[in-house]
Structure formats: C-alpha cells, structure tokens
Simulated assay, not measured.
Amino acid sequence: MPTLFTFVSRLLGGDVHHAEDIVQETLLRCWLKYGTADRDMLRPWLFTVARNLVMDAHRRNRNRPTEIEIDQKSLADLAETGSDDVVLTSMTVKVAVRSLSPTHREVIYRTYFLQKTDEEVALDLDIPKGTVKSRRFYGLRALRLVLEEHNLGPSMSLASEGVGAKV
C-alpha cells in the first residue's frame, strides 16, 4: 500500500527503513487480527494501527537512556572517583604494568586490554606467535611478582578490581 507507506514515512520524518518496518508490522497485524470484518473500515483501521505503532516506537526511544561513548580519559577519571581501595589498587596495577619491559608491556596490553588474539598481536608487532606467547608468559610472571610485593598477589582477584580476568 503506497499510501500507507507515504503516511508512515512522513510521520517518521522520511526514515524509509523504519517506515518499511512499521508498514510490515501493520499489515501483519491486519492479517492476524482484522480477519473478515467490515472491508469499508479496513483503510482507517490500517492508518490508525500504523500511527499507533509509530507513537509506540517514539515513546520507547524517548524513555530509553541516552547512550554515550566513553573515551579513555573519561574512563580514567571515573576510575579515580571510586573508593580509596579501588583507586589505590588501580594505581598499584598501573605502576606494576609500567615496571615491565616495553616488549612484555606491549604484548600484555594488546592481549588483555585490546583483547587481541595471539595471531593478531603477532601480526601487529611483526613477530612470531611463539614469541608473543613467551613474552606474555614472562610478562605476567613479572607482573605477579610486583603485585605480590604490594599484597595484590594470587590471594586477591584482579578481576574484581576492574583489571582483565586473565591477569
């Protein structure tokens, strides 16, 4: 029905894809519910259903919380507004990661913070996959030693402090 599609498209400000969805839903509801009722009332009924679907979609989108994208600086600011223990742990982990050699730190960063696979890290750094595994192993071992010195070793779960679960 081109007339129904034009009507819905205007209600949606020209959003053709959303209008197609609304018209499809309207026709589906007509097929399922209207049945063999009075054919003279079919057109007004279709337009009313389509209008109601548009209003429902608008209300649903209006009540949904606004999605925002958080950059790394904002994330760091949010981390520092937590409780003292969390902030202290976060700072200790940062110091521990900085104490690693640049090669170990780079592999751990790409693997746990960027969540890349061994193959992706190897391609990024132009090194063999086995070297990636070795650097990750020795980097994590050094990281554990530093964290144990600050009483954040195996007894404390870093995952609960916001650090990757694999560390």
Rank of each mutant, 00 (worst) to 15 (best):
I108R: 07
Y109M: 12
Y109V: 11
R110H: 14
R110W: 04
T111M: 12
T111H: 05
T111A: 13
T111K: 14
Y112V: 10
Y112K: 05
L114I: 06
L114C: 09
K116Y: 10
K116L: 15
K116S: 11
K116I: 03
K116V: 04
K116G: 13
T117H: 08
T117G: 15
D118I: 12
E119L: 12
E119F: 08
E120N: 06
V121N: 05
V121G: 03
A122F: 05
A122W: 08
L123G: 12
L123R: 15
L123W: 06
L125N: 05
L125F: 10
D126A: 15
I127D: 01
I127E: 04
I127L: 06
P128G: 12
P128C: 02
P128W: 00
K129N: 09
K129A: 06
G130W: 06
T131K: 08
T131N: 01
T131A: 10
V132Y: 02
K133M: 11
K133P: 01
R135Y: 11
R135G: 00
R136K: 15
R136N: 11
R136M: 10
R136T: 06
Y138P: 00
Y138R: 14
G139S: 11
G139Y: 09
L140R: 08
L140Y: 01
R141F: 01
R141W: 04
A142C: 03
A142Y: 01
L143P: 02
L143Q: 06
L143Y: 08
L143V: 08
